[in-house]
Design a protein around this nucleic acid. Structure first.
Lengths: 150, 150
DNA sequence: ATATTTTATATTGTATACAATTTATTGATA
DNA sequence: TATCAATAAATTGTATACAATATAAAATAT
């Protein structure tokens, strides 16, 4: 890989582009529920495991608490979640789905599933794609670790 | 692909994560030059083709002019580029590298290249990865077109 | 030649996104 | 138990990111 660096031959650039296109892709189905892509991702995590701390979500979603705190406040204001201080440890804020937030899992995920079907992935291609992206992540993480140990 | 939607089995989520890791990955080498990842991507484009309009960059980088205008102003302020109204068409703003901006291509790209080498891609894996990501983009674009024609 | 439409960029408002700092609480230790 | 260290969120400041709107210039139509 000693060729000249150009925009189009950079994996980072193509990943960024795919990221942008996914954002756009989710916009239409999620607009019906007044959700942004990141808000949807946050709800996905809560539908898997509810009553968690901001720190937990931060780890799970790979977002800083500086990003999450205002995002969660917006989700609270819109009635998806509640934010309550943990009585047992007043430093923590527990994020819980409201009844409405929990109930919306089915309609939202089935709407999204409908859109995902239009991407027309067969199982093998889907798995290959996932593995390729996870491999990119692994290389980046390994490189980061190597940096820290030097 | 009729399995339940969870965070980790979503291509979008893994793409987002790879995008975040790339941002982090570029942070250290680019900090020496006081550049962010997006500013670097913008310079990459200008090193390929200089003296372009905001619109051209918007298309090339897949960013809206609402993102680019302030970004370009910051690059101008930091001495990387100049922004001048096109005399032949006063609606246009031409973006040109300064002498300093042009000169920095070599040191910056070679620093970045050094970091990219640490990702340890052989040609075949690199090409497979690129093709997989481009395939994701294609599926998203095709799905978007299908939406518009319905 | 004037009105209309199109084009190019800038601005506004809202939402991420994160580093660095601050505040508050809890845990550890001397 | 008083002090210090560690932890959890919130806040601040800066930088993307885009939709919608505004502004101004150029192209087109009447």
């Amino acid at each position: 890989m000693t060729n000249k660096i150009t925009l189009d031959n950079q994996i980072c650039f193509q990943i960024t582009r795919a990221h942008q296109l996914f954002n756009k892709f989710y916009q239409e189905p999620l607009s019906k529920f007044n959700l942004t892509y990141v808000q949807y991702i946050t709800l996905l995590s809560l539908w898997e495991k509810d009553g968690v701390t901001v720190n937990y979500l931060s780890q799970k979603l790979g977002l800083s608490n500086g990003t999450l705190t205002p995002l969660l406040k917006r989700l609270e204001k819109a009635g998806w979640i509640t934010r309550t201080r943990d009585k047992k440890d007043e430093r923590r804020v527990l994020i819980k789905l409201t009844e409405h937030g929990a109930k919306q899992e089915e309609p939202i995920t089935s709407t999204v599933q409908g859109c995902l079907n239009s991407l027309d992935y067969d199982d093998k291609t889907f798995n290959n794609t996932m593995n390729t992206i996870l491999d990119v992540q692994n290389r980046l993480e390994k490189s980061e670790e190597a940096k820290e140990n030097s």
